[in-house]
């Protein structure tokens, strides 16, 4: 029972990280009908800029865990947000009229360039980097199970970010504009909505979520490497597709489903835990043949 609770908890934490990445994919697809494959590497960029922020704080001799954490998150979000805007402004928006395949390939190459630059320009970039411990690791006992306090806080942080994002999309003027552009770009423009600005704001928002996910992932595993975004990007993309690309709730459900699949595998075959991704991806391939449009099909869902 206690073990089950621990698995459930760790699964939920992974789920929230995947959901953060998946929501980004869904937002980009919503406003522009594009799949932006550089998303995972923008996450890596976020994790490394968070690390750089921490190192510079350390050099300044500041050592306040809470302040450091906030600073690390803010820097990561700032860098990823700007990266999202730059990729949107200079690559995706100008290529808007071209086939989806070209944009997919182009963003895949941009992503590769990003993580190769990290590998080459960060000192010792090819090796994994230790990520600082910024949250207390005190174990907490819940129903006989021991859960690390930092993981609990990370889970709360992730859920909080998702709730705020969802609220923004539903209840703010920017959110109204994002949904209008997602549902009908031309009509949104003739209502006075500045199309390009809204698209870039969406790219910034989605990329900032990846920044948060990158930092969370680093804090959870205490380690990052230049390749971390590649797998997370594929997982986030699969989650978004399984949930129904274009729907925020679909992306969230998809993210948690992927983590649930991994967790179930590890729970039943602990000695073969290395195969958890193989199992999860195989199941998703099967799910996709049953529901090609995702769990929440776009035409029934409230798109973005």
């Amino acid at each position: 029972m206690a073990i089950l609770l621990e698995y459930l908890f760790n699964g939920a934490l992974l789920g929230v990280i995947y959901a953060l990445v998946a929501v980004g994919f869904t937002l980009f697809f919503g406003v522009l009908d594009v799949i932006k494959f550089s998303h995972g590497d923008v996450l890596t960029l976020g994790a490394y800029s968070g690390l750089a922020a921490f190192v510079s704080l350390e050099l300044l001799g500041l050592d306040l865990p809470v302040v450091s954490l906030i600073f690390v998150l803010v820097v990561a979000m700032l860098v990823t947000g700007l990266a999202g805007i730059a990729i949107g402004q200079f690559f995706v928006v100008p290529m808007r009229g071209s086939p989806a395949f070209n944009i997919l390939l182009m963003t895949l190459m941009i992503g590769t360039a990003i993580h190769e630059c990290i590998r080459l320009f960060v000192p010792g970039g090819a090796n994994p980097k230790a990520f600082p411990t910024l949250l207390p690791r005190t174990p907490i006992e819940i129903g006989g199970a021991y859960i690390r306090l930092d993981s609990l806080l990370l889970l709360v942080l992730g859920i909080g970010v998702i709730v705020v994002t969802n609220w923004m999309v539903r209840h703010t003027k920017l959110g109204l504009a994002i949904r209008a552009v997602a549902q009908d770009g031309d009509t949104a423009q003739i209502m006075g909505i500045p199309f390009r600005r809204v698209v870039l704001a969406t790219f910034a928002l989605g990329s900032m979520l990846a920044g948060v996910a990158g930092v969370m992932n680093g804090l959870y595993y205490s380690e990052i490497n230049f390749n971390v975004g590649v797998l997370l990007g594929v997982i986030g993309f699969s989650s978004a597709v399984v949930g129904g690309l274009g729907s925020i709730w679909g992306a969230i459900i998809g993210g948690f489903s992927f983590a649930a699949l991994q967790t179930v595998w590890v729970l039943f075959f602990p000695e073969m835990s290395g195969y958890r991704d193989v199992f999860a991806f195989t199941t998703i391939i099967v799910l996709m043949t049953i529901w090609p449009t995702g769990i929440i099909a776009e035409r029934y869902s409230e798109r973005v």
């Binding site: 109204l176 504009a177 949904r179 209008a180 549902q183 009908d184 949104a188 209502m191 409230e302």
Partner: peptide, 19 residues
């Protein structure tokens, strides 16, 4: 007509006053 199908009537009207 091109209404925004997944928005409520009131949200549609509010988009009209976006500026």
């Amino acid at each position: 007509r091109k209404v925004f199908p997944k928005m409520t009537v009131e949200e549609n009207l509010r988009v009209g006053a976006y500026l």
